[in-house]
Nucleic acid binder design. Structure first.
Length: 885
RNA sequence: GCCGGAGUGGCGAAAUUGGUAUACGCACUAGACUCAAAAUCUAGCGGGCUUUACGCUCAUGUCGGUUCGAGUCCGACCUCCGGCACCA
């Protein structure tokens, strides 16, 4: 141990020792409990950003904590290395996507290693390597066998100028990002995966994980799946023009509120609905024009929140309400989507907001058929309702159903409709099947061969992987680069040996991320995605950590994939991760100067804010305007501070400690460098303290040989021991509940308490030395999850050996409650809920004693004098509240 | 627009889950040490008021409610953030 803490030196030393010793390599071991700690794998953009640092620091802290508690920890890492940026780099810079990706991985691996994250690097995987994506293809073929993969037509964004498909991001604002041309939608045959088959199970199995997953994530997933129970109801179509065909035509709607059917004023149908298309000739020219207009409107890509005003037109046709026999108009409406339900809705303006808006705009009748359950006598009903009442309630204006509650009526009316053959109870979902086809090069090729005579033929398992060609023409124009590589496209049909063409679409990168962490358990397997036995040892994941932005899609896809793998007997469980920690985004306040055409550093910017702190504008110190934005790190080219610089200035330990101390992990964190000095100072304070005792106290080396039982402790030493054990208790609680910021504060308090002892090492008696060594040992071990390099070095100073913390079987300290116990506590005394005094009481005082002490207090007597004490509330250990009149 | 979340000092935040609001740290101020600076150490640090006190009072986005007691629970609103199926 040197006198001065020099981060870079000890970080290099311990990173080397860990590597040489294989400290973090995981081996299955049935004698110890296992712990699989997983962080979402990064896209290899080439540069780590603070969001990564935060994510991996959290996972590393937990891994260390669990190791110190004796768990057999698996902590792996890999690369989500397929995706658009590599292909864009190929288009823009002419590089090979593979080389570009490998270089980026090289760099980021170096950065993660310089952070000292305790990964088992022997298990590293990368999605773009054939040994991995072979099994993406393997899974696709399995799902084809299971009937879970299928092909259907679906829309893509299409740029007519570039003649290429665009992702939503590339088509944002409805214009092509390259050429600015208006983007269109185009139909295309694409491969889908039947996630909807698991919709119910995905909902039901939330029970298994509700203790370990954040409620908000489960809620979002529940809403995303959007299971709704309701009924299909058929309305007969009556149309004078169609004459005899009247009786034949029926329009099917889906409703969750069949109880409101007496309030239906019209049927509103999507413009794309077959009913409209088949009857188009029967409608007036005006209706035909409106239908075309709505279809054209729907074909334009829209940004979120860009809601079209309600529009529609009366087709002139009529439908019959099967309950009331009432004749109602059939409308075409732009707010009815063909893709959800049946593409037709029964419009009940009194009880649905969208219908209400529609009816108001076109002056359609609004009839109330549900009244709030609480209301006794219907008061004077307003002529025109001001808003839709969409709650459940009591039926009115509904013939024989009047007086029933919605809940009861829904069942009864559905049964009635079923009996009479015009309806059926049903469940629908918002969830749609997952389209996995992408018209891109840099992804796993979909293993299908198209043959003139045999159709779409799966590539036989023994011919996997279908490898990507070395290169392809990357122009950004026209069809996917892969489709332009003749050697790839042209092949023979596995069935008939005739000429065949390969599928040139590749898979969505979400496919890789559904199962990558299963692969970590057995990353070198060439025959199967992974060995079942090994996977069943390590999995499910004990703690999954990643951004809240993945709350729905990735986490829902991977839950689905797990169930699919269970169904082919690859794994024995239903849910992939028992605990989930969603970390908040790390964002950077960014400042863009138009004049300089570049981002500028915050130090040069003067921000004007109003009295609420809202940013009004910002100027550079020279007076020129700058644009201020808070940007999600990693999303734009702007990644704020570079972790590399931070590590070389402050050291990995300080960067990691501060990134966790700065905010609770689920909070969004606006990254600011100010404050990191505090973390450095803290580490230095601990360092100096231990160095001083180690070098100045002659008994330091054999301080552990004494037992505390026969030692005399001074008041100060006793206090320090108390603080040490209180800190252990507090930090253990925090870690167990997933709090990573407060333990740092607790460690700082403990180090402050160590200095408060204020005993010179040379003058220390045996009790002082014991208390100090106990504090140092505990602090060092509890600091390891945050600052492992410093901790290893301090541990060496304490034990006199560089064997390493884990190698010397050190364990996370356990609090001794007797030592931690306080003798006296401060009790707040309130009068009528207002704090009026504080009294010191023995820690074990009972309620009577506390009340007595409170009433004895002079100030309290002042406040209660001459008043009647109505009630006394005593919370032992906390407060006494006297209610007086 | 729909779904989900957040809002506490100048700043990041804490609050034993309904019980002493502002722990810990940053920034700042003053002092010690120093020729000086840095580093380090000591003290102060939400607003207002006055009789400067172990004083009063206001304060956890805004307004209202429940309670002996609300940052925490309930209702409404405002602002910001995440996701919305081809960004990963």
């Amino acid at each position: 141990m040197d006198e001065k803490y020099f981060a870079q030196k000890i970080e290099r030393k311990w990173q080397r020792l860990w590597r040489e010793r294989g400290t973090f390599e995981a081996v299955p071991d049935e004698t110890r409990p296992k712990f699989y700690c997983l962080e979402m794998l990064p896209y290899p953009s080439g540069k780590l950003h603070m969001g990564h640092v935060r994510n991996y620091s959290i996972g590393d802290a937990l891994s260390w904590y669990k190791r110190l508690q004796g768990f057999n920890v698996l902590h792996p890492i890999g690369w989500d290395s397929f995706g658009q940026p590599a292909e864009q780099a190929a288009i823009k810079q002419g590089v090979n996507p593979r080389d570009w990706t490998e270089e980026n991985i090289e760099q980021m691996r170096g950065q993660l290693q310089s952070l000292g994250i305790s990964y088992d690097w022997s298990r590293e995987i990368a999605a773009h390597r054939p040994d991995f994506y072979k099994f993406d293809q393997w899974f696709f073929l399995k799902m084809l066998e299971m009937g879970l993969a299928y092909r259907k037509n679906s829309e893509v964004n299409w740029c007519p100028h570039c003649e290429t498909t665009l992702s939503n991001e590339q088509a944002s604002g409805g214009i092509c990002w390259r050429c600015g041309t208006q983007v269109e939608k185009q139909m295309r045959a694409q491969w889908f995966v039947r996630i909807t088959k698991y919709a119910d199970e995905l909902l039901e199995d939330m029970e298994q994980i509700e203790d370990g997953w954040p409620e908000r994530v489960l809620t979002m997933q529940r809403n995303w799946i959007g299971r709704s129970k309701g009924a299909f109801v058929e309305f007969k179509v009556k149309n004078s023009k169609l004459g005899d065909k009247d009786a034949e035509q029926r329009l099917k709607v889906f409703t969750t509120r069949i109880d409101t059917i007496y309030g239906v004023n019209s049927i509103v149908v999507a413009a794309e609905h077959p009913f409209i298309q088949e009857n188009l000739d029967e409608f007036s020219g005006e209706v035909q024009d409106k239908v075309d207009e709505i279809i054209a409107e729907h074909a334009k890509p829209k940004d979120y929140g860009e809601e079209a005003e309600k529009d529609g037109i009366d087709t002139g046709m009529k439908a019959i309400n099967p309950f009331s026999g009432e004749e109602i108009p059939i409308w075409v409406g732009n707010y009815v989507m063909m893709g959800y339900g049946t593409g037709a809705v029964m419009s009940v303006p009194a009880h649905d907001e969208r219908d209400f808006e529609f009816a108001q705009k076109f002056g359609l009748p609004i009839r109330t058929v549900i009244k709030p359950a609480g209301e006794t006598e219907a008061e004077e009903e307003p002529e025109v309702a001001a808003a839709a009442f969409s709650e459940k309630g009591i039926l009115i204006n509904s013939d024989s159903w009047n007086g029933k509650h919605s809940k009861e009526a829904i069942g009864a009316m559905t049964a009635y409709a079923e009996t009479n053959g015009f309806g059926k109870g049903a469940v629908t979902y918002r969830l749609r099947d997952w389209g996995i086809s992408r018209q891109r090069f840099w992804g796993a090729p979909i293993p299908i061969i198209y043959c003139e005579s045999c159709g779409a033929v799966p590539v036989p398992f023994d011919q996997l992987p279908v490898e990507l060609p070395e290169s392809a023409p990357f122009t950004g124009i026209g069809e996917s680069p892969l489709a332009k590589v003749d050697e790839f496209v042209n092949t023979t049909c596995p069935k008939c040996d005739g000429p065949g063409k390969r599928e040139t679409d590749t898979m969505d990168t979400f496919v890789d991320s559904t199962w990558y962490y299963f692969r970590y358990t057995d990353p070198k397997n060439t025959e199967q995605p992974f060995d079942q036995k090994t996977a069943n040892y390590w999995l499910p994941v004990d703690q999954y950590i990643g951004g809240i932005d993945h709350a729905v899609m990735h986490l829902l896809y991977t839950r689905f994939w797990t169930k699919m793998m269970r169904d082919i007997d690859l794994v024995e469980f239903d849910e992939p991760a028992s605990n989930l920690l969603t970390q908040g985004m790390v964002v950077a306040e960014s400042f863009y100067s138009k004049e300089k055409e570049s981002y500028v550093v915050p130090d040069d910017v003067v921000i004007e804010r109003d009295e609420t702190g809202k940013v009004l504008g910002a100027k550079l110190k020279d007076g020129s305007d700058v644009r201020v934005a808070v940007e999600k790190m990693g999303k734009s080219k702007l990644n704020g501070v570079d972790p590399n610089d931070m590590i070389s200035i402050y050291g990995a330990d300080a960067v990691r400690t501060f990134s966790m101390f700065a905010a609770p992990v689920e909070n969004e964190l606006v990254w600011q460098e100010t404050g990191i000095d505090g973390a450095v100072r803290f580490l230095q304070r601990v360092w100096r303290f231990i160095y001083k005792w180690k070098t100045e106290n002659e008994n330091w080396a054999n301080g552990d040989s004494r037992d505390s039982v026969d030692l005399e402790f001074s008041g100060g030493a006793k206090k320090l021991r108390q603080k040490t054990h209180q800190t252990i208790r507090r930090i253990t609680d925090n870690f167990e509940s997933g709090q990573f910021n407060t333990p740092v504060a607790a460690l700082m308090e403990l180090s402050n308490a160590m200095y408060d002892l204020n005993v010179e090492p040379k003058q220390a008696n045996a009790g002082d030395l014991f208390a100090v060594r106990e504090a140092c040992r505990s602090l060092t071990l509890m600091l390891t999850p945050y600052a492992p390099h410093v901790s290893e070095e301090l541990w060496e100073a304490i034990t006199g050996s560089d064997a390493g913390i884990l190698e010397s079987a050190a364990e996370f300290p356990i609090a001794d409650e007797d030592v931690a116990k306080e003798d006296e506590v401060e009790i707040a005394v309130q009068v009528n809920g207002k704090l009026r005094a504080r009294v010191i009481a023995p820690a074990d005082s009972d309620k009577e004693k506390l009340q007595e002490l409170a009433m004895e207090d002079g100030k309290i007597q002042e406040y209660t004098n001459g008043k009647e004490i109505v009630k006394v509330i005593v919370v032992p250990g906390r407060l006494v509240n006297l209610v007086v009149k």
